[in-house]
């Protein structure tokens, strides 16, 4: 596993002066991602927070080539980049599609599914702040039960899509979940994915101080609590075989998880939300654990 020293001492791929909000974890996430993948990377970025915080023309905070593209087209344009690189024999370049949850689980779902089914050569990272944060925090298909957004003012009713599992059903060489609070885990997963050919998918939980309404300095803590309460399960699947990541392994036992309340208490989006909706969230989490642990028992 990568050391903290190595992360800190490697070249900074995100330049100072970018336009991310205070406490933004998507900018942290991309910093880690590019530290993991190196300089020989081409990125596609659809409409999402990163399309804004990369900074306005004629400057850019991102040190690798970036193709900004329409909302639903992160995966399809990355497929094109990948095919062109192959046509030109430049197969050592890593193609990174970097999209938010709305651009992945909602408007871009068909596009990712297509690229995954074709096993086009790229790493696709969905950094999820569990809402359309860039447009002012509306409900997305990744918004958890009970969460307040500007389009669910009394709390989200219903359950989010589990995009990582949806991608897992595509028979991919690599699928994983990660969280910006655990850079060593995330970087390790990216490097593993980089060694593989084909479509690799990582769902990165990226807590959003503005959207979730917590103090900017709590970003890392909130992300950790997501894992420690079991709300976000860290796992990976190499060639289909699901395995809990070491950080999440012990939370297989519900007794070892911190109460969900610990995670929600920092988040203004859960303030005043009905007990029923919070219970619905807990039920959703427990069910997700049943699914993941059951699937982890299946080996190819």
């Amino acid at each position: 596993m990568v050391t903290t020293k190595e992360i800190l001492s490697s070249p900074e791929p995100i330049l100072p002066g970018h336009a991310a909000c205070a406490g933004c974890s998507s900018s942290l996430g991309l910093r880690y991602a590019l530290k993991a993948l190196g300089e020989n990377v081409i990125m596609t970025i659809p409409a999402c927070c990163t399309s804004v915080w990369q900074g306005p023309y004629p400057k850019s905070a991102i040190t690798v080539p970036v193709l900004n593209i329409a909302f639903a087209a992160a995966a399809s344009s990355a497929s094109g980049v990948s095919a062109a690189l192959e046509a030109k024999g430049k197969t050592d370049t890593t193609v990174l599609a970097w999209a938010g949850d709305g651009g992945s689980v909602d408007i871009g779902l068909a596009t990712i599914s297509g690229a995954a089914e074709r096993n086009d050569n790229m790493i696709y990272v969905t950094y999820s702040n569990e809402s359309y944060s860039n447009t002012g925090v509306q409900k997305s298909g990744a918004t958890p039960p009970g969460a307040r957004t500007t389009t669910t003012p009394f709390g989200r009713i219903g359950s989010p899509k589990n995009i990582a599992l949806i991608m897992w059903t595509h028979h991919l060489p690599y699928v994983a979940t990660a969280c910006t609070s655990y850079p060593r885990d995330f970087i390790g997963k990216l490097r593993k994915a980089q060694q593989m050919k084909g479509f690799k998918f990582i769902y990165l939980l990226a807590p959003c101080a503005v959207g979730w309404r917590f103090p900017a300095e709590k970003t890392i803590e909130v992300g950790k609590l997501a894992v420690e309460t079991g709300a976000h399960i860290l796992w990976e699947a190499v060639d289909g075989d699901i395995e809990l990541s070491p950080l999440s392994k012990k939370y297989r036992d519900p007794a070892k998880r911190k109460p969900l309340e610990e995670y929600l208490k920092y988040q203004g989006r859960y303030k005043g939300i009905s007990k029923e909706l919070v219970e619905a969230y807990q039920k959703y989490i427990d069910y997700q654990w049943s699914i993941i642990t059951s699937l982890a028992d299946i080996k190819k």
């Binding site: 193709l67 344009s77 990355a78 980049v81 062109a84 030109k88």
Partner: peptide
């Protein structure tokens, strides 16, 4: 778009 932007 992706391919053309990569020079193909």
């Amino acid at each position: 778009i992706g391919a053309s932007a990569t020079g193909a």
